[in-house]
Design a protein around this nucleic acid. Structure first.
Length: 552
RNA sequence: UGGGGCGUCGUCUAACGGUAGGACACGGGACUUUGAAUCCCGCGGUGGUGGUUCGAUUCCACCCGCCCCAGCCA
């Protein structure tokens, strides 16, 4: 299946308009990358992978007031983690400032750019409106010599910030506002993270981006739909200077996802105002957050494959993303047993001092994952929600008089329950086991509907488990404007501080945290805050839960 | 109301002018030592009106709806 950009590329290749595909992923280092960027990254890096060529990582660092070194490093880390390699092609728009400056002088010499002394307010006022043409600047007809002189003095720092700009001389009556003598350069005294104070004039996006593309020999410059109106300006600049190559811009629809905000401003606000714990909070749709949450990069790549690339504004259901996460984790996550909310289970007819070991599989989807041993005794813990005093008809788990299988161990029948006399809370569940069911088998062929997970009291390891839900309870927080915070889910984060996990869950490997499936509960991964004496796990995502639907 | 874009199952996305297909979601069933996974089956769509054509999602006209643009942000 081909998307429209791939069709364009195939035509270009066939027609000989280019011999290889050179793309670029051009983030501005003013925030962290998120799942929406992943769509662009997969597209830009995927195209040359498919058709031959390369993709550059280019930082669009033309606004020193907003950009930071921290973001540059974070972005590199995230792109690499996603699985893409820019090789030696790491670039910065700021590397081209000198050459861009020369192109600006070329425009001035051709009478196609002028230095404008109007204030910001005057420029705005004279731009006109959507329905009325703008008014030409009184400085529009300065001589080439004067413009050159003024522009050079702008560069030297002779004028205060905001006092003058360089503008393209195009058409103040254009129905496309971007063509009404757009600003090309402005004066900014801020220190740039890379060029420091060597420059005090900085090129605007529309001037810098197309030239960056041309300098790098980019063939297909792919961006999002909101830049469609800028394409005439992209072309104008390249058509009016002598660029080293001639790239073309194509636009696709950015990703939107239900229950998620993806605008950089809103994400930055969540971080700044402390609604989440940083850019890598596991509830964040940032790549750093998803990584910490335990989402494998492969799942993100698959997701980007499946959502496709088109020009239709769309909102992808988060369920598709969740499906991709489960799909990958199901094949790769080691199974272990963990009880998040423990209640004692005592097997009355099992000897007090006996300990058995059972061999269980590490991943039924992957025989190569092998098996491990789990300890079993008279005293266990099970999930509190797996016992019900007053069970509904279709409840397959434990209740007085009912039999269930303890995964991998024995069948047990519930004989009673001990409760706190004050609160009525269940303190302990009592049962008797069937010695003939060792390993969870039923020699007599009887069928048990329920199989529950458990941990053994003496060997279980206490752990903290951090449970994350969707950050927003409303489907379209992005559409809620500035009030999007009101759509936040107050229960998006909770801790299970008295969880118990089997020892295999905390076995460390040298290659970083491994995705785990806590049997019947979901996928989890050890958090970076985790310590050997205080293991912490993040819930990546729950298993599909048909029972939850039956209950409803 | 100027300009630019976009309308296909609930959602996302395909279909040289020739049987509207896939994925997710949803519903049902089989299987199951995870109420998971897996496997079957089902559900459902071309914004509207005309026109061209043997035949239109595709071409044309008009209409309707949605998105983007008035930063010295990107």
């Amino acid at each position: 299946m081909k998307n429209f950009i791939e069709k364009i590329i195939e035509e270009d290749l066939t027609a000989g308009r280019c011999s290889e595909v050179i793309t670029r992923f051009p983030p501005e280092p003013n925030g962290y990358l998120h799942i929406g960027h992943a769509k662009s990254i997969c597209l830009n890096f995927g195209l040359p992978r498919r058709y031959g060529g390369r993709c550059h990582l280019r930082f669009d660092d033309t606004n020193p007031e907003k950009e930071e070194e921290e973001f540059i490093e974070a972005i590199k880390r995230d792109v690499a983690w996603l699985g893409f390699d820019w090789g030696s092609h790491l670039y910065f728009a700021s590397d081209y400032f000198e050459r861009m400056y020369a192109f600006a002088e070329e425009l001035i010499e051709k009478g196609l750019a002028f230095v404008c002394d109007q204030t910001l307010e005057e420029i705005r006022r004279d731009r006109g409106t959507l329905t009325e043409p703008g008014k030409e600047s009184p400085y529009r007809n300065r001589s080439v010599e004067e413009n050159l002189d003024l522009f050079r003095r702008m560069r030297k720092g002779e004028f205060p910030e905001g006092s003058r700009v360089l503008r393209a001389k195009i058409d103040m009556a254009s129905p496309n506002l971007n063509m009404r003598d757009p600003v090309l350069y402005r004066i900014r005294r801020a220190a740039h993270p890379r060029t420091g104070t060597t420059w005090c004039i900085y090129p605007m996006y529309d001037f810098a981006h197309c030239l960056g593309d041309a300098i790098e020999g980019v063939t297909h410059s792919i961006c999002t739909l909101e830049f469609e109106d800028h394409r005439p300006l992209y072309d104008w600049v390249l058509d009016n200077v002598t660029p080293p190559s001639r790239p073309y811009q194509y636009e696709f629809a950015r990703l939107n996802m239900t229950y998620t905000v993806l605008s950089k401003r809103k994400l930055a606000r969540l971080v700044r105002e402390g609604h989440v714990n940083g850019w890598d909070d596991p509830r964040m749709p940032t790549l750093a957050g998803l990584r910490r949450r335990g989402v494998p990069p492969e799942a993100i790549r698959r997701f980007c494959d499946r959502i496709g690339v088109a020009k239709t504004n769309s909102v992808v259901e988060i369920e598709l993303f969740e499906h991709c996460i489960r799909e990958v984790l199901n094949k790769t996550a080691r199974r272990v047993m963990a009880v998040l909310d423990p209640v004692k289970l005592t097997i009355e007819n099992y000897p007090e001092d006996r300990i058995e070991e059972f061999e269980v599989e590490n991943n039924p989807e992957d025989a190569a994952a092998g098996t491990r041993k789990v300890a079993f005794s008279r005293n266990l813990f099970i999930e509190r929600e797996d016992f019900l005093e007053d069970p509904p008809k279709k409840f397959f788990r434990l209740a007085v008089g009912r039999e269930v299988r303890l995964k991998g161990a024995y069948l047990v029948t519930c004989t009673g329950v001990k409760k706190d006399p004050e609160t009525g809370e269940v303190k302990e569940v009592l049962c008797r086991y069937d010695p003939a069911s060792r390993g969870g088998n039923t020699p007599d062929g009887r069928r048990v509907k329920g199989t529950i997970h458990w941990v053994e009291e003496k060997t279980a390891v206490p752990a903290e488990i951090r449970v994350y839900e969707r950050l927003f309870r409303i489907e379209n927080p992005e559409g809620a404007g500035e009030e999007f915070l009101e759509g936040m889910n107050e229960n998006s984060f909770s801790r299970k501080c008295s969880a118990l996990v089997e020892p295999a869950a905390v076995q460390r490997t040298s290659s970083g945290p491994m995705p785990l499936q806590f049997l019947r509960m979901g996928y989890f991964i050890e958090d970076i805050d985790s310590k050997p004496n205080h293991p912490i796990f993040n819930k990546t995502i729950g298993l599909r839960d048909t029972w939850a639907k039956v209950k409803r």
